[in-house]
Each structure stands twice: as C-alpha cells, then as structure tokens.
Computed example of a mutant assay.
Amino acid sequence: MTGDIGDFLRSRRARIQPHDVGLPDHGRRRVPGLRREEVAQLAGVSVDYYIRLEQGRGPSVSDAVLDAIARVLRLNSTEQAHLRALARPAAPAPGAVPGAVQEVRAGVRLLLEAVGGSAPAFVLGRRMDVLAWNALADAVTGYSAMPEGFRNIARQVFLDPAVRALYPQWAQIAEETVGHLRLDAGRHPGDPVLEELTEELSARSEKFRQLWAGHPVKQKSHGVKIIDHPLVGFLELPYETLALPGEPDQLLVVYSPRPGSETARRLARLAENVSLAPALVLNV
C-alpha cells in the first residue's frame, strides 16, 4: 500500500479551493483544488519538505507540521488521526503473523449472550471480519450460514446482491465500510491479507473501486442502522461500538432498539422464532 499517504493528501487537496483559504485563483489549473506549493506555503513548510512527505520519503514528521497540514486541508479528527498513522507507519507487533486467527475471549462471548435476549450484538475484528455473535444477531444477519471465509462486512456489503435489499441505506453503509477499511489499512500498513481483500473487492465491485479511490475514512462509534428483514420487516436499530479492553483490534457492536418501539416488538418476535429466521447466505 505504498503511496497511500500521497493519495490521501492529494484527495484532500482536491477538496479545497484557493478562495477557500484566501488565495487568488488565477489561471487554469491542471489539478483540482490546492497545489502542493500552496499547501506548503499555508502550512509554513518548504515546498521540497511537503513534496517529500506526500511521496512517502520524508523524515520523521513533527506533530506541529502534521497539525498545520491538517488545518490547511481542513481534516476532521478521524482524518487527522489517519494522516498521523500514514505519516508514521506502525511497526508490526513482535511475533505478529499476518492473517492469524483472531481469538475472542470467553468473557466477551459470555457478554454477547448476556445481552442476547433483546439486543443483537457481535464482535468486529481486523479487516471487518465478524468474529463472534449472539443468536439474535445471527437471526438478523445470518452469520452462521455464511462460509467462514466470508463472514466479513465488506464482502457482504459489496459482493452479496441481496444485501442491497437488506439495507435500504446501502449507499451510506458502503461508504462507511470503505472508510473503516481505510482506517484499518492506515493502522496496519503493508498487511498482505488486507491487500488481498481490497484487490478482490476492487476486481469484483465497481462501486468499491470508486469509493476506495476517494480515500474516505470514517470512525463509526454510534449511529442508527435500518434493516429490512425478510421475516419481520423494517428494523430501526440504534447501535454503539465499543473498543474491547486489551484487544485494540476488536470492537463490540450492540444494536439497542428503543424500549416499546415497533422495532423492539419485531425483535422480540424474531427472538421467539430464532430457529425459523431465514438464513442470509452470500451469493459468491
């Protein structure tokens, strides 16, 4: 994934017009947005220094320089953290094996079951792999019926045609999915398994290729997901995403329907008939 920092910075330069930052906009421009020279000028660094940074061959970059560039390019907090990860690639953990099986602690599995009576919940790992889930989450999304290698949110979103009917807000979910993968790529540079995944998705999904090229980065800590379930109909599911202590690459995602809502009643019916819930199998 060499070149990611350059691609990311170029994508963010393209969003900013000269007049947005008080610069004159004279003459025809070969590229949209700010030129590298203009970013360097506004950030208070030399043009050569900024070019080397964008080419991924610069020296260790200070917080002050990264903050200045982030300010010029109007990066939000998630984008700023992503820039830092790209500018200072993390070394692999000692003994780390790419693609190694991600284990979920027994206590986390007990927690999944403890909330399983009314709240679908699952554990999301590296590369958006779904590592564990409770029965109600399975009834909603059919994880257990999927081949083990395809229990992955990105593959599900971009490679299963049925998912577009399952998620009425599919376009938004697709962008969020790519944004999450971009964050993962920044935190784990050179991960061959993630590279294989993105190459597969790029080869099989034009929409993924378009989104990936735009370098979105999104941290979805909470929100509302709408699901059109084939058995019980529309579900409006507020969710919270919690980082698991001691497991920096695992997230606990819990859908919590509002008490007394129609969604809560529909989930209760689904829980009563969990064995009858239709399996949602990837068509890959």
Rank of each mutant, 00 (worst) to 15 (best):
G22H: 11
A213I: 05
L23M: 10
R36Y: 02
W212C: 00
S11F: 00
P230N: 03
L111I: 12
P238R: 09
E196G: 07
H19L: 04
H26M: 09
L231N: 15
A271K: 10
P259I: 07
S202K: 13
V47L: 14
G214V: 14
R209D: 02
S62K: 14
V193N: 14
V281M: 03
R182Y: 10
R105D: 15
E262V: 10
L251A: 02
A100C: 14
A96F: 15
G233K: 07
R74K: 08
L75T: 07
I51A: 12
A40C: 12
L124S: 09
K225R: 08
R29Y: 10
E206G: 00
T198N: 03
V140D: 02
T2H: 14
G246W: 05
Q156F: 08
Q41F: 11
P24S: 11
E37S: 09
R30I: 07
L194N: 04
Q156I: 08
T241V: 10
V72L: 00
P147F: 07
P92N: 10
A171Y: 06
R15C: 14
Q80F: 10
R266K: 14
S261K: 04
L75V: 08
A268P: 05
V104I: 09
A145W: 00
E272H: 13
V21N: 01
G107Q: 15
T2A: 15
Y49Q: 12
P147A: 09
A100S: 14
L270A: 02
P248D: 11
V274D: 01
P94I: 15
V281L: 04
A119S: 13
L83E: 08
Q55P: 13
R35S: 05
V217Q: 00
R84N: 00
R209T: 02
R35K: 07
S60M: 11
F122W: 06
A135H: 01
G117K: 07
T78D: 06
S261D: 03
R127G: 12
Q80R: 13
R52T: 15
L251Y: 06
L276E: 10
R35Q: 03
W133F: 02
G56V: 14
E176Y: 12
D20I: 03
A81E: 13
Q250N: 11
T263C: 09
D138W: 02
L131S: 01
I226F: 11
L124D: 05
Y239W: 00
E200C: 13
G3Y: 13
S256C: 14
Y167L: 04
L83Q: 08
F158S: 15
A135M: 01
A114N: 14
Y167H: 05
E195D: 04
P92M: 08
R204D: 08
V254A: 03
M146A: 11
R84M: 00
L75H: 03
Y49G: 12
L183R: 05
G186I: 06
R127H: 08
L23E: 04
W170H: 12
G186D: 06
D25S: 03
H180M: 08
L131M: 01
E79K: 01
T241R: 07
A264Q: 02
L231C: 13
R109N: 15
